[in-house]
């Protein structure tokens, strides 16, 4: 496998906050990497930073951002515009605000084809219908003339995906692509993304808060907490035997991960408190809510330690406990 995207030490700061700190990750060609986290974890900002779509007040710094052999940090704004939407595309949570409300959907897909692939007006219009068909918009030739408000939420998300994949990007960044959708529609859209990924040999960076989505659709997952990577693993590792106190707490708190557990069996295990300000205090950002802290947790961010194959965990305490007990920490 070849590395498609290589991000080293990405940090994002605002005048009074540092929502992403020293985040490193790679995505291989054709791979689905999920970044999972709650609100305030910095997952959406990470996606925006990759596409140079951060708000003006944000400062981004990184040791390295290489994509398909190119140094993205060295590209001029003009060069980046050529890349964005062509090799590197993005879809958002709410398609209604990302689509142009006064342009028919076929024209919005065609625009990408003309801009990035240089197709003629006529060829682009024809190809747009094919792309709408690819994302399984029923009756695409007729539907191409419809406006976004005439479509359901699920159909609008399909149009967003059509626009994003029209130029056959090698990486699609999907920021909470199904959060606004119902569960049966969510499954359809994620199935569609999985199939497009295979058919177009496209890698997918899936930003989500939903562990179930990770379980079913990701090859690898990174858990973010307050702008820091706390654990990286394969989905079955993270969901089956989470190693960081935060991911352990999430699994225990989630009714979905404890199938059959009923309120008559007892309360859910809570993570006390709430996500603190990401203002860049010293130490592990999870320490104020953590049940396992030792003094060093408050002073410096624990390094990511390689555990078993394919897994990194930023917690020295659970590592030591597991070794001394000779088994995994159960919750």
């Amino acid at each position: 496998m070849t590395v498609l995207l290589d991000v080293r030490d990405l940090s994002i700061s605002f005048p009074n906050a540092r929502p992403v700190q020293e985040l490193s990750f790679t995505i291989e060609e054709g791979e689905t990497l999920a970044i999972v986290g709650e609100s305030g974890s910095g997952k959406s900002l990470t996606a925006l930073a990759l596409l140079r779509l951060l708000p003006r007040t944000a400062q981004m710094s990184a040791g390295r951002v290489r994509f398909a052999g190119r140094d993205l940090l060295a590209l001029s704004e003009r060069e980046f515009r050529k890349l964005r939407g062509r090799d590197l595309a993005m879809i958002f949570q709410e398609p209604m605000t990302a689509l142009n409300p006064v342009l028919p959907i076929g024209a919005q897909v065609a625009e990408v084809l003309r801009l990035h692939l240089g197709l003629s007006r006529k060829a682009a219009a024809r190809r747009a219908v094919e792309v709408l068909d690819l994302v399984r918009i029923p009756d695409p030739a007729r539907r191409a003339t419809a406006y976004p408000h005439q479509l359901s939420g699920g159909q609008r998300q399909r149009v967003m995906i059509a626009i994003a994949v029209a130029a056959h990007p090698s990486l699609l960044v999907a920021d909470e692509p199904t959060t606004a959708l119902d569960v049966t529609i969510q499954a359809q859209i994620l199935d569609l993304l999985a199939q497009l990924r295979r058919d177009l040999s496209m890698a997918l960076l899936l930003i989500t808060h939903d562990l179930g989505v990770v379980a079913e659709w990701a090859d690898r997952v990174i858990a973010l907490y307050a702008g820091r990577k706390v654990e990286e693993a394969r989905p079955e590792q993270l969901l089956g035997t989470p190693r960081h106190p935060y991911t352990q707490g999430l699994m225990a708190a989630s009714p979905r991960q404890r199938v059959g557990y009923h309120y008559t069996d007892g309360p859910l295990i809570e993570i006390p408190g709430h996500i603190g300000s990401a203002a860049g205090e010293a130490g592990c950002p999870f320490a104020p809510r953590c049940g396992f802290t030792e003094p060093s947790c408050r002073t410096s961010m624990p390094p990511l330690l390689a555990r078993e194959e394919g897994r990194l965990v930023a917690c020295p305490v659970t590592a030591a406990r597991e070794i001394s007990h000779g088994h995994a920490v159960g919750l």
Binding site: V183, Q186, A187, E216
Partner: peptide, 18 residues
Amino acid sequence: DAVPGAGQGTGRAHLGGE
């Protein structure tokens, strides 16, 4: 069946239509 994670990628068919 549509609850994400329920099928763990078993390829079961999801409900069509809206």
